[in-house]
Design a protein around this nucleic acid. Sequence first.
DNA 1: ACCTGAACACCGTTCAAGT
DNA 2: ACCTGAACACCGTTCAAGT
Lengths: 235, 235
Amino acid sequence: MVQNARSKKTSSSQRREESLSREQIIEASIELLDSSGEEGLTFRALSERLATGPGAIYWHIANKSDLLTAACDAIIARTMNAPLASVTSGTPPQTTIRLLALAMFDAIDAHPWVGSALTHALGKSPMVRIVEHIGQQVQALGVPKKEHWITVSALLNYILGVAGRNAANGQLARTQGLVRSDFLKAVSTVWSQLDPKEYPFARSLAAQMRAHDDRKDFLAGIDLILRGISSPRRT
Amino acid sequence: MVQNARSKKTSSSQRREESLSREQIIEASIELLDSSGEEGLTFRALSERLATGPGAIYWHIANKSDLLTAACDAIIARTMNAPLASVTSGTPPQTTIRLLALAMFDAIDAHPWVGSALTHALGKSPMVRIVEHIGQQVQALGVPKKEHWITVSALLNYILGVAGRNAANGQLARTQGLVRSDFLKAVSTVWSQLDPKEYPFARSLAAQMRAHDDRKDFLAGIDLILRGISSPRRT
DNA sequence: ACCTGAACACCGTTCAAGT
DNA sequence: ACCTGAACACCGTTCAAGT
């Protein structure tokens, strides 16, 4: 209360001007999520950052799930529009899909919480945006209309799988105070010590796991699926 | 307190015999998760079901995350072993992979919470089991050793993506009191009303979404990836 | 119309005290 | 060795009361 006493200064500096807006709340949520992860986003921390009470937020936002979806949507909207800047009408759809997928990967890498937020926003706007952008390229690829759903689903599920993994990796790494590469090294070490009778394959994979590059491997998976899409059915 | 008064009856019926065991706790957790979803698993509900206090559980289990992983592992262990019963040495690896993948789908369909539990148990035993079983088939497929990691990752990420989606679908459907098919119909209706200028593709997908069959489409995605695996690289 | 902040009904987890 | 259950430090959400 004391620090609010100097409110005579018309409308200059760090005091909130006019009223709280949905955009302000979402932007503050993103900052909070980026700096302290999913569990760092609480209505109390958020209202403190916005210099207001917990109840005030409920005037603009329905509930926490709504808040998370909105924050996620803000990131996805930026992510889906950015890579299209370098795309011309001559760009092959495969290239555009790779660009979109990589943009998703980088966004989730920068904001791990987006990964799990996406999972919980299935019919919602973030997902619609992604489906739209990827779908248009699948269409341009000449995939028959009947297979649109299955093809987009396959790409989307793969991307969501990676997203979820990255989100979990990020959170685990944060919890244990490790960088992600160190965390993977730790897992690799555990796997290399698995019982060779029971888990021969997982054990043999430990070395590749230690050396791998998340981003490159993600793209390799996209390429694998793209190959599957353009490969004839056998049935 | 009153209902425990008749404890003279030696050791016959519904009273706990001997002491609480980790297995009992995990089994009760699975029942709770199946009947009331992820948010239904609380230490209070669990301890009530086990006729004990919340603190007692901590003697056998480290924390909630440990509990969820253990419950998930119990389901995955059953899931990965069952389909192998019908596999002989002559079964082509593709067929076995399809069987394993379908077993995963069905398990997650029956226990939606497994989907999100898997995401949070990355280096842990449930994941090791899955990697081991799928990996052995990838190896049998003749995939070069250098590509083991990427190939298994692609399959796994796809499966995890579907798993996460199913988990979220199940939870949403539960929250809104809908069966899953009704929930998809509702989403499809929303999508069919999207702005055709902004979201032409997503809009055109609504019909396919309404008609689709989760399980069949899941398998179609696996087949698509399998085609990609056996299709030559272009580099 | 928008905000305040106390209050409600929960959580996971701990820990002295019991047996 | 194992269990009890009160207590702690949190949550999301609501709502009368304010401006």
